[in-house]
Simulated scan of single mutants.
Amino acid sequence: MAGRRRWSTEEILDTAAELLRTSDAESFSVRKLAAALGTDSSSLYRHFRNKTELLRAAADRILVAAMDGHRPEGDWKQRITALALRLREAFGQQPQLAAIWGRYASSGAGSRLVMEEALQALRASGLPDAEIPARYHRIAVLLAALIAAEAGVATLTPAEREQGLELFRVAVLGADPERFPALAHFARDVRPLGADRRGAFEEILAAQLAQIEAGIP
C-alpha cells in the first residue's frame, strides 16, 4: 500500500494562499487546508504549530515576492516610497493576506528584507541612530494600517460596494443641517473611503516622511 504523500512547506503555503483568495482569515482553518490537500491536519502541524503561524508564513511570502528584484534607487524618501508602493501592489494581489499581515505581522525572510531596506533608507537620511528605531516603527505601523485597510475594501463584492456607497450617500446627503452643519456644508464634496486610495496613500506617506525630514539635524 502506497504511503501518504508528504507535502512540502511551499506546497502547503501555495494551497493556503489559494484558499485565502476566496475566503477570509476567520473562516480559514487548518482542517479546510488539509482537506484541500487531501491529507489530515496532523500532517500540517509538522510544518506549522498552529493556524496563526501558518498565516504569518503565508503573509511573509508576499513580502518576499514584493522584494524580489528590488534595487534601491534615489534618496532616502524615494527609497521608502518605492518600498511602500511595492508592498501595496504585492498585497493588492492577495488582499486577504494584507489583512493578516496588518493583524499578525510576520517574522520571516520577507519581513527581514523589508526591515533592512527601511532601516538603511532611514540611516541614509542623516537621522541620528538613536532616533531611527522609533521612526521606523511609525512608518511600519502606518504602512500596515493603510495597506490592510485598502485590502478590506478590495475584498468587498460589487453588491457590497454599491450598498456601501448608497449608505454613504444617505448618511451624508441626508444629514440634518441644523445638527450637522459642517457635514451639510461639505456634503457634495466629501468622498467615501474607497475613493482615490492611491492618492491618499501617497499623500499620507509623504506627510510622514516630511515630518521625519524636518527633524534631521
Rank of each mutant, 00 (worst) to 15 (best):
H137Y: 13
E150C: 05
R21K: 15
F48M: 07
A90G: 06
A175D: 10
I204P: 03
Q96M: 12
R103N: 12
A59T: 04
L127W: 13
P128C: 06
A105N: 12
T15K: 09
A84W: 08
Q93A: 15
F91R: 11
Y136Q: 14
I80M: 02
R197G: 06
E73V: 08
A25K: 04
F180W: 14
V114R: 11
K32T: 07
E203W: 05
R88L: 05
L113A: 14
A159S: 10
G126V: 14
Y45E: 06
R135N: 09
G215H: 07
D40A: 07
S43P: 00
A58H: 03
L33K: 00
H70G: 04
L209I: 03
L156V: 00
L37R: 00
L143N: 10
W76C: 00
S41P: 04
R49G: 13
R86K: 13
H185A: 14
D189P: 00
G126K: 12
L113R: 10
L19N: 06
A159Q: 12
A144E: 13
E202I: 07
S43Q: 03
L44Y: 00
G69C: 08
L54A: 09
S29P: 01
S29N: 02
R138Y: 10
F168G: 03
L63R: 09
Y136T: 08
A130V: 12
Y136F: 15
D176Y: 04
G164Y: 09
L85N: 11
L173S: 14
S125Q: 09
R161A: 15
L119T: 15
K32R: 15
E53W: 09
Q94W: 14
